[in-house]
Computed example of a mutant assay.
Amino acid sequence: MKNSKTFRVGAIAVALVIIVGVLLVTFFLTRIPNGYVGVVYSPNGGVKDSTLSQGWKLVGAFDKVTKYPIRIQTVEYRDIQIATSDGKNITIDFAYNYQVEPSKVSSIFNTFGPISIQEIEDTYLKTRFRDAARKGISKFTVIDVYGEKSSEAGVDVQQRFSDDVKELGFIVSNVTVGVPQPDAKTQEAIDKRVEASQELERKTTELEIAKKEADRKRVEAQGNADKLLIEAEGQAKANKELQQSLSSQLVEYETIKKWDGALPYVSGSNTPMIQLPTTKTEQNSGTGSVTP
């Protein structure tokens, strides 16, 4: 019986030790997640100069730790109402990335107090972003925001927002502008504008094709003309060279080479006369031709 009682006392003691240990962990240890830093605030000493890096850290029993992300965070704001430069009210979804500059986390804590980063995103950052979006989008028409200038609008909003919050220690990047959601009348105007643009693009494409086909035919015709001209010039040159190479002696020589010696038949007693080339001596003496 005494042993049983001793056992119970021992078990209670162990339990008390465990409870005390858990309380000590609760009071004196805190965990900083990966990609975060912690700012320690003490009711007696205020904000401490040093920040806590990731891991388990020892703090005072009454110290409070506020965690801030130093890795990139993504924030989305949906259904923000904005007016364009042509007076159209549209609804747009936005998204952006940001991270906290590690050297300024104490300043952020002094500005906003011991509130979570999510609360800052939903209050201060959202207000500043809406202001930057309103000023940035108001420079563009609804067609611009809907079409090819949406990225330009996003860059304008990002620059304004980034410049506005960087002094506090927020580094902003990659603002994305979603597809605007206009009212029915505005959507109808957009559809007509898009159809007109597509029709213009189609006609421009057809015109380019026609121009290229005309250029092809012109080049082909020019090539044929050049070919004919070259052939004509070659033929003319050949004729000229042939004409210059012909002489009466050559013609007579070629005639004799092809003559088989037979006289052509002539009815009656007449014998045809054939003009033969003169000898070299007679040609040089100038006595004229002879009859064989």
Rank of each mutant, 00 (worst) to 15 (best):
Q158G: 05
S151K: 13
V157T: 08
Y68T: 02
G60C: 04
S150M: 05
G46F: 03
L168A: 05
A221G: 08
D215N: 15
L52S: 01
A210D: 07
T278M: 12
R160N: 06
V219T: 10
S151L: 09
M1I: 01
I117M: 08
D86Y: 08
W259M: 04
I120Y: 00
T123Q: 10
R202V: 12
N44H: 03
L276T: 08
K240F: 15
T51D: 00
L125D: 01
V290H: 06
D93E: 10
G154M: 10
K139H: 07
I143N: 13
T84C: 00
N97P: 01
V175Q: 03
V37A: 09
D163F: 14
D93H: 02
E201G: 05
P182E: 14
R193W: 06
V175F: 01
L52G: 00
Q158D: 13
A95F: 05
K166A: 15
D49G: 11
E188W: 03
I117A: 13
A83D: 07
R193T: 07
G113N: 09
I82Q: 10
T271K: 05
T176G: 11
R216G: 06
D164A: 08
V155E: 09
L242W: 10
Q118W: 14
T6Q: 02
L200K: 11
T205H: 10
E233S: 14
Q198Y: 00
T186E: 11
S162M: 14
K240H: 09
T278W: 12
N89F: 04
F94S: 03
V100I: 13
P272Q: 09
L276K: 01
K2T: 02
E148D: 12
S269F: 01
A225W: 14
V14G: 03
E76F: 13
D215F: 02
D156R: 07
K237P: 00
S151C: 07
F7T: 07
V100D: 00
R128T: 05
I256P: 01
K203M: 14
Q235M: 13
G38Q: 02
Y41P: 02
G46K: 15
G21T: 12
F129E: 01
S197W: 15
Y124K: 10
P33G: 14
L52R: 03
K258S: 13
D79T: 12
G60T: 00
K139M: 09
D191L: 02
G223L: 07
G223R: 09
V194E: 05
K139F: 04
I171G: 05
K212V: 13
F28D: 00
R78V: 03
L207P: 10
R160L: 06
V100F: 05
E148T: 03
L58I: 09
K211W: 06
Y146W: 08
A95W: 00
E201H: 05
Q81P: 14
E220W: 11
Q187E: 11
V37P: 01
K126G: 08
Y146C: 02
L246C: 11
G45P: 09
Q235T: 15
S50V: 03
Q181K: 03
E206L: 14
